[in-house]
Design a protein around this nucleic acid. Structure first.
Length: 431
RNA sequence: UCCUCGGUAGCUCAAUGGUGGAGCAUCCGGCUGUUAACCGGAGGGUUGCAGGUUCGAGCCCUGCCCGAGGAGCCA
């Protein structure tokens, strides 16, 4: 008899199969019992009819606790009433490990705080399984897309000697006799790699020691950061459009069942097509003022502003040419209007906020040096970065895509904490 | 760091300042098509902690702890 995974059950109609997994739920009606088995690839109902199995086996089934590891054998039966279209008629069952009877997560409602304390077990539930499968699909799509477009994976270090951007708070750690910091962006290293490989990206965790406590923030999150030589602002935006539409297309194609589990409105994802609207910062300010928001030219956008903007479009929208003072020191000022920079953030629809921050970098040595001094950054830490403008400097651009916010948007979740297996949150690092 | 809301049974929540309850989970019983199954019964409590007001506090007051949402900052 063949051991199969639940996800491939449709290939085995009317055959006898074996499945190894865990008991997800059980129901009993006297002479008929139902077990829901999960094996990591899916969930399937197993039906046990008293008159068709040995008495000893039928009685044993009532004693199996939730989440016990079991091995079942039975015949795959087409069944209209089953969610997958199939169920299994039990022939035999072995308990590999009978779980303790106090499994904390029932199928009834629980609060988020409680579930997060049991995150290691919560991962077993259907919704969490769907979210993390979609996360994996998104990451696969990103890497496929960038590889196809000729970008080379060149990772940036996690341990860094100083602030990459010098602004936000960093996690500090010991590095033998020195201090080191966990990276908050691979971008500066990416610029060096781009001058070596042309088109590169890094993909890895990023750390921010900000005491942020909102649905959009984690202390540790994952970011993909492409960077390309000879690419200017508009081409940079076009790469992002193609990337985002590709990600959405792949999820719709390969993870539709998971989107349905999450009750995601799929029609909203189907609208994600090139081109995305572009809104200059100046226009965005006017738009927000017309909607009655208190904001002046030169203010950066907060969560409320992003939400209002994103709800005005049914696609992601680029906001470009922000005031220079709002953005990082390395952003290239517009030669025609130095008070704004050649940058663009991509705001996801449905109120999900910023998922990409990107732009063109300063390629002139003297201007970069001036900005480093204006921002009071220690020049000696940036000598290597300045070198890139001494030896074959070219126009170049890049962007950073936040994985968790992208997953939250595509899954339709209202908080990023469920989009990563083990979220690191303010004052919470267990489990 | 600041603002708002909350903490009562294992979980989710009720309870006018006057005898702390329900649903689920657990245990016992019933049911041949259940989908978070259902029906009957039972057990289960130092109301986050420490003070205070009151004849009497889960409820009012003060401090602290913890959680949730948000602001700032950002992806």
């Amino acid at each position: 008899m063949q051991t199969i995974r639940i996800s491939e059950i449709s290939n085995y109609a009317d055959q006898e199969v074996e499945i190894k997994g865990w008991l997800y739920n059980k129901r009993s009606s006297g002479s008929i019992k139902f077990l829901i088995i999960r094996d990591g690839s899916g969930y399937i109902q197993v039906t046990i009819i008293k008159s068709e199995v040995e008495k000893e086996l039928f009685e044993k089934i009532g004693e199996i606790e939730y989440e016990s590891a079991i091995r079942i054998a039975g015949r795959v039966k087409k069944e209209k009433r089953a969610p997958l279209g199939y169920e299994i008629l039990l022939k035999d069952l072995q308990v590999i490990h009978n779980a303790q009877k106090d499994y904390p997560i029932s199928l009834k409602e629980h609060g988020v705080g409680f579930l997060m304390d049991f995150r290691h077990l919560w991962l077993r539930s259907t919704r969490q399984n769907a979210v993390l499968r979609i996360r994996a699909e998104i990451i696969k799509a990103i890497r496929n897309f960038l590889d196809q477009e000729g970008f080379i994976l060149v990772d940036a270090p996690i341990l860094t000697p100083a602030a990459c951007e010098g602004t936000t708070t960093l996690f500090e750690t010991n590095y033998f006799e020195d201090k080191a910091y966990l990276t908050q962006s691979g971008q500066l290293y990416n610029e060096a790699s781009a001058m070596a490989f042309g088109k590169v990206y890094c993909f890895g965790p990023t750390f921010r020691a900000e005491k942020s406590k909102t649905r959009r923030h984690l202390m540790e999150f994952w970011m993909v950061e492409p960077e390309a030589a000879f690419v200017e602002l508009e081409e940079n935006n076009q790469i992002q459009e193609r990337l985002i539409t590709y990600i959405v297309k792949q999820v719709l194609k390969n993870k539709r069942a998971e989107l349905i589990v999450l009750e995601r409105d799929i029609s909203k994802l189907e609208k994600i097509q090139i081109p995305f609207p572009r809104l200059a910062y100046d226009q965005a300010i006017n738009m927000l003022k017309e909607k009655g928001m208190q904001i002046e030219w030169g203010d950066d956008f907060g969560g409320d502003e992003e939400t209002v903007i994103s709800q005005s479009f049914d696609k992601p929208v680029f906001i470009h040419h922000y005031p220079t003072k709002c953005k990082a020191f390395y952003m290239k000022p517009d030669p025609q209007r130095p008070e704004v920079v050649l940058c663009a953030d991509l705001i996801a629809p449905e109120g999900y906020g910023e998922i990409i921050g990107g732009g063109q970098r300063i390629d002139d040595y003297n201007l970069l040096l001036q900005k480093i001094e204006e921002h009071n950054l220690p020049r000696k830490d940036y000598e290597w970065y300045l070198d890139l403008r001494k030896y074959g400097s070219v126009p170049h651009s890049g962007f950073g895509l936040g994985i968790e916010r992208t997953v939250a948007w595509i899954c339709g979740l209202n908080h990023v904490r469920e989009t990563i297996p083990f979220p690191r949150m303010l004052n919470k690092i267990y489990p």
